[in-house]
């Protein structure tokens, strides 16, 4: 009788343990999905017209359109919040944001800490000057000039590697660089990705992007997320693949950044990534192959 009771108790304990383990497993898998709640916190830039600007708390720009399009496909809605360039990685690893869509270039170093979905746009680094300033027409003309960049981007490093004669300095943010160039005239040029620079020219008609001056390697923008969400990463990748395959990408890009189609007749081949390149950069710890 005692033996039977002990056996029954052991069986019940095992059943309870198994049930607990199953429940925990289900809870974990449900919690790990970034899209499960239907609301996704998305870090964006707040001061880049054309790509991402929070105008009186109304987000506008290509990054914003992209976030809305892709998350809608996944049955979720974005909650946008401003993120400075230098904090784009830490807000993800610190779990303050679920995604960052903020003209964030895919690099080997960043891929080690974050997962990317992309590229969703490609752009070269370029140079912006005052409209009536003819001094800079080729990269060598930057020697001896004051060129402004801002922290947390790859732009300043590219300039420093090009030539030690370029007087590169970093202002606190993009707006400060624009002010230095346009109003204070302490900068001779601002250098960052051409896609961002063309966005600025839409709000600052006194500035222009120098045509045919490109610096460094091609930047590929990716949607970043913390590691550990590979299923979400692949779902987002499929949504991006669909988006790039149809005509929506071109329409949305031209609507958000009309200055680019006006300046560059081949804008689609320069800024739209090829669908077959997505797997080399997406949901990996290191770029393929």
């Amino acid at each position: 009788m005692t033996a039977r009771r002990t056996g029954t108790a052991a069986l019940l304990t095992l059943t309870a343990l198994a049930a607990t383990a199953t429940a925990c497993g289900s809870a974990d898998s449900a919690n790990t999905s970034l899209f499960a709640s239907g609301r996704v916190s998305v870090g964006v830039k707040s001061d880049q017209p054309g790509t991402s600007k929070l105008d009186h708390y109304q987000p506008l720009g290509f990054d914003i359109t992209l976030a809305n399009r892709l998350l809608k496909k996944l049955g979720a809605e974005p909650d946008f919040g401003a993120v400075p360039s230098e904090d784009r990685s830490t807000v993800l690893t610190g779990k303050k944001k679920d995604l960052v869509i903020a003209t964030f270039s895919i690099t080997t170093e960043r891929m080690a800490d974050l997962d990317f979905v992309g590229p969703y746009a490609t752009t070269n680094q370029g140079v912006m000057v005052r409209k009536n300033d003819p001094r800079i027409t080729k990269p060598a003309d930057l020697n001896g000039k004051y060129v402004c960049a801002w922290p947390g981007t790859t732009s300043a490093d590219t300039l420093k590697k090009m030539s030690s004669s370029i007087k590169v300095y970093e202002a606190p943010d993009a707006s400060s660089c624009i002010e230095d160039l346009e109003k204070r005239k302490t900068a001779d040029a601002v250098s960052t990705d051409q896609m961002i620079l063309y966005g600025f020219t839409q709000e600052h008609p006194d500035l222009r992007v120098v045509p045919h001056v490109t610096l460094g390697p091609l930047n590929r923008y990716g949607i970043a997320m913390d590691k550990g969400h590979r299923d979400d990463c692949r779902a987002l990748l499929d949504a991006l693949r669909d988006y790039l395959t149809g005509s929506d990408w071109s329409q949305d890009f031209a609507a958000a950044l009309p200055a680019i189609p006006r300046a560059d007749p081949l804008w689609e081949s320069h800024y739209k990534p090829r669908v077959d390149t997505l797997d080399a950069y997406s949901c990996r710890d290191k770029p393929a192959p």
Binding site: S105, T107, T108, T158, K161, P217, N219, K286, P289
Partner: peptide, 12 residues
């Protein structure tokens, strides 16, 4: 490999 891992990747 990329000479500078902090620069946009060119590996693919």
């Amino acid at each position: 490999d990329d000479s500078d891992p902090a620069a946009p990747t060119c590996r693919p």
